[in-house]
Nucleic acid binder design. Sequence first.
DNA 1: TCTGGGGTCCTAGGACCC
DNA 2: TCTGGGGTCCTAGGACCC
Length: 356
Amino acid sequence: MRLIALIDMDYFFVACEELRHREIRGKPAVVGSDPKREGGRGVVMTASYAARKFGIRSGMPISMAYRIKKDLAYVPQDFEYYEEMSAKVMALVKTYADKFEQVSIDEAFIDISKMASGYDEALELMKGLKKEIREKIGLPCSIGISVNKLMAKMASEGAKPDGIKVVKEEDAAVFLAKKPVGELYGVGRKTSRMLEEFGYRTIGDLAKANPVVLVERFKSYGAELHNSANGIDDSDVQENWEVKSISRERTFGRDTSDRHEIVKAIGDMSKEVGEDLKKQGFAYKVVTIKLRYSDFEENLRSRSLTHRSVDTDEIAQVATQLFDKYMEKGEELRKIGVRISNLAKYKGQKRMTEYA
DNA sequence: TCTGGGGTCCTAGGACCC
DNA sequence: TCTGGGGTCCTAGGACCC
């Protein structure tokens, strides 16, 4: 039997800010853009539990949060600081793992099949990890323990906030059955609406559904849905994960069609993308720009280079060419983005042609 | 209510080659 | 004159997650 845990940091960005701003501890606070800044565009990235009591949620427009509660503590995001804190947490988590996979800035799966011989030992082990994160770093987290990644993730949702939950293999079906389909990992708004239209309201409904019918209705995704609803997931904790793309995007303070302003933004973002590329030692092949217009219509335009490149100046050149070629004249842009992809490790000694 | 930024994975049509 | 498949790459878009 496998034993997998998901460590999920609680309200991570705000929790990090509470460490260095004692005055907001336990208070309603959010990390996100400044609602009083020009335009006031942006969303709540993280809300403290005290803020959630007022109905404030992450992803909510910051202007809406401001309407609900003007005297929230609005803290601007500081990703470098969160990355630093994340690295400290992840270093600790690794010491408790046979296998370790970081899935986001504040979440990681670990395989503890060898470190623990059963659910009880796994629970004791994770209590130790949780205590150490709290004492050495000062941050709260929630931990889910089960027999695969999917169930560990689902268990962690039930552990929040600041808890640990074990879901044994034999209890998985009951644990999932009554939850709405939208709570199943991998089911978002669109799919959950479609599922409900077909009459699948709970995860249990989906689990009992005929898989053949699900495949008819959702193609290959149908089979996956059926497995997930039954708590089945054979995927491994992936240790050697490599980044596949690097991107930056920026929303303008107000919509613009000013070429100078846009090209400047493309240049700035291309530079940042290029710096990341160098830091991580990759070569890239594809440059993509993302255009979001005033009406939220979004277009991607990309070009593949003939060879993999490490030339960071070329990112801005290609991105600007794409912009000039595809930007619809007279339209106003809300957001512009630059991405490089089709990455491969680049080792300085080798000649470029080997990466073609 | 009016909507960020960083990612991943999947699908699908067309081009091109054998 | 009309007709195959298979494989791979390119491009665009969509859904999802945190």
